[in-house]
């Protein structure tokens, strides 16, 4: 028993010390340095802007809107095809292709929207 204690105590102590060091290191890394920002900094930056103004400040999402419209159209065509399924052999193939396209667009837009925020 005493041998066990002799063997484990220094190891436990070393592990504790390492854990403590990790915690201190994380705290130090997470501590943001204090900065002194001049009160008029934003105004000064705005005053020094070059004469040419940007055409827009907010981001546009024309591409995304077009994709959503395309998805809606694909869905509408899919519904129409489903209602007429069985009347023509080509309908089944077209339905499968459109369904694949619809799923691909859904996955792509989901990945894109959650990828970089």
């Amino acid at each position: 028993m005493s041998d066990d204690l002799k063997n484990t105590q220094p190891e436990e102590r070393a592990a504790d010390l390492e854990h403590e060091l990790d915690q201190r290191l994380l705290r130090a890394l997470e501590a943001a340095p204090e900065v002194d920002i001049p009160a008029d900094f934003a105004a000064r930056v705005a005053r020094n802007l070059p004469a040419r103004r940007p055409e827009f400040v907010t981001a546009t999402h024309y591409g995304e809107h077009a994709v959503f419209l395309g998805m809606l159209l694909t869905l509408a065509v899919l519904i129409v095809l489903t209602l007429h399924n069985g009347r023509h052999a080509g309908f089944g193939l077209a339905e499968s292709l459109l369904l694949t396209q619809f799923l691909a667009l859904t996955i792509w837009i989901s990945v894109r929207r959650h990828g970089v925020s």
Partner: peptide, 15 residues
């Protein structure tokens, strides 16, 4: 107005 908007943007992100 564009300058004012940009000034606000600077103020929000300066720190």
């Amino acid at each position: 107005d564009a300058d004012l908007t940009f000034e606000q943007l600077v103020r929000e992100h300066q720190s």
